[in-house]
Each structure stands twice: as structure tokens, then as C-alpha cells.
Design a protein around this nucleic acid. Sequence first.
DNA 1: CTTAACTTTCAATAATTATTGAAAGTTTTA
DNA 2: TAAAACTTTCAATAATTATTGAAAGTTAAG
Lengths: 168, 168
Amino acid sequence: MNYHEAKDKFIQTWGTLGSSWGISRTMAQVHALLLISPDALSTEDVMDQLKISRGNANMNLRDLLDWGLAYKELKSGDRKDFFIAEKDIWKVAKQIIKERRKREIEPVLNALEELKAVKGDKNDKKHKAFVEAVTNIERVVEKADFAFDKAIKLDENAIVSALFKLFK
Amino acid sequence: MNYHEAKDKFIQTWGTLGSSWGISRTMAQVHALLLISPDALSTEDVMDQLKISRGNANMNLRDLLDWGLAYKELKSGDRKDFFIAEKDIWKVAKQIIKERRKREIEPVLNALEELKAVKGDKNDKKHKAFVEAVTNIERVVEKADFAFDKAIKLDENAIVSALFKLFK
DNA sequence: CTTAACTTTCAATAATTATTGAAAGTTTTA
DNA sequence: TAAAACTTTCAATAATTATTGAAAGTTAAG
């Protein structure tokens, strides 16, 4: 496999992985391209290399900035924006967890809390099953939330070695 | 909020959460419905309550069985299949992690391994950046894979208390 | 066997989500 | 201030993904 084949396959692979873990396919592809680029790229570079439109490139670069997965780099003597990826993948992972915790877990916890207050006959089979299910789920979601919160505060090796110790 | 409102909101919430964590919206909704149902439901019950077609109900129930998130229950004197959800949410979470590890992480690790073997000038800036990026990613993905592998073997409290100890 | 009860499949269609590209907006330079 | 260089927006459109429902398939009972 030569450089170009490998590059395309990498962008494709990273895009697929990203989209299955909650970041959009194109955003992950742009990130992949930036990851393997030794130098910062402009919007046009991204457009050319991924064959996407200006609007699309702009949108996804902006989203990457929002997620903290890429940074702007201004080159003196050039008015264009250039972009570089966060290349510490552990930091990338933590950043994604952090964003998704905020965007997805928090609203769910709020919704679940509300749901427990359902009015009705507390001895009804359905009512009991409902409150029980919601309470159980809330407990697990809270624990997952807690785990993610801790994970983003630990470094790469600490979390792995902590888990490992449990099996020594 | 009365029972029906709460039920609908719960199904909606669980569907949204599911779809953002990699299981299809409708599959998560069917699972939600089964979760709060005190008794096993038939395909028709699911069709009626979620207002979805027979084909769709069948497909999603089958997928839930595949993922190990629901079970068939046969009632004597009835030829229909009835379904109940796995109600231990920690088990549900572990099951989802297990399936996604198999379906998504393993293929990515294989692809990354292949990519490291890219042919070309090892001193070229691009080539070096590429191999470095792929190697870094592989390292983190392997660690995440390891962590998930351990997580699905631990019980609910062990993993949380292990993380907690690191902060005491 | 044959019929009835039920489940599965799949091509057509609908719904959703992503992408384009031209126009509007912004910033910088001279 | 004007014009050039660049970025952002957004309505139209394309691509993708999910859903339907009728037909085919399967299983069990009579």
C-alpha cells in the first residue's frame, strides 16, 4: 500500500469510527486529514483533498474548533486561516467524552428525574414497573456519568492501570 | 405528568439516548417500551403501542434479541412470540459495549495495523507524520478496547469504586 | 395433506441528514 | 472609503437511512 492509498484508507477508517461514536463522518474525516498533515491546512486544502464544498469544509472545521479537536493557526503574511488537529489522541478522546457528556447525558438525567414524578396509582402494576425502570436507569446513567467525569480528569495510563490492578 | 405522558416521554428519551450511543432510535424505543412493561409483549402489542409497521416491529425485536437486550418468552396455549427486555441496565450497558467492541473497534484495529505498513520514503515528512498519527491512535484505541474489555467483566459497583479510589 | 396462525423478507417509499454553492457578510489593506 | 481576500450562511438538493406493507415463508394443529 502506498502513501496515497494508506491516506485515503485512514481517512475512511477514521470517518467510520467517528460516525459510529457520535461525531459526524465528515467532521471525523477532516480531523483525520489534519491529524496526518505535518503542516497546518487551509480551508481550500481541506476542500481539495477531501473533495468537499467550501460550505461543508467551513462548517466541519468550525465544529472541530467547537469540540476542541482542532485549532486555528495564523500564518504571518497570509490572511487565510490555517488549521491543525489536536494530535494527542487521549486528549481527543477525553474532549469527545466531555462534549458528549454535556450535550447528551446531562439532558437525559434531567428528563429521567422529571419522569420519576409521574402521577398516578402507586400500587398499579404498570406504574410500579415504570418508576422502577426509570429509577434503575437513572442509577446506571449517573454512574456512567460519574465514570466519564473521572476518566476525563485522569491521564491515559492511570485509568488503564487502575482497571488492570483489579485483575492482577 | 400522568402515566401516558410519562411513558411517551420516556420512550422518546430512551430512543434519543440510544440513537446517540449507537443503537438505532426505533430499536431503543422498542427496548424502552419493553423495559417499562410489567408483562411480556407480542409483536402486535409493540406495533400498536409504538404505531409502527409489522415489518419494522419484527426487525427491531429481532435486533434486540441479537444484541442480547431482550428475550423471547413463549406463553403456553399461544403461538405468538412474546418479548421481555433485559431489565438489569448495567447488563444492558455491558452488552452494548460488548457488541460495539466486536462490531466497531476490532475492525478498526485491524485496519490501523495494516496502515502502519505503508510503503514509501521513511524520511519524508508526510510519511513520518502519517505513521506517527496511526501509531498514536492505535495505542489509544487499544487501551480503550482493553478498558471496555475489563469493564464488561466487572460489576457495576467495582468499576465505579475503582475509579473513586483514585480520588479519595 | 391443508389450512390457519404467525414470522420474515424486501422492493418501494418516506423521512432524515448531509452537502452544495452562490450570495451575503466580514475583515484587512492601501 | 473602496476593493480585495477571505469566511459564513442557508435554501435547494443530494445522499443516506428507516419504514412500510404486501407477499412469501414457516410452523403447528386438525
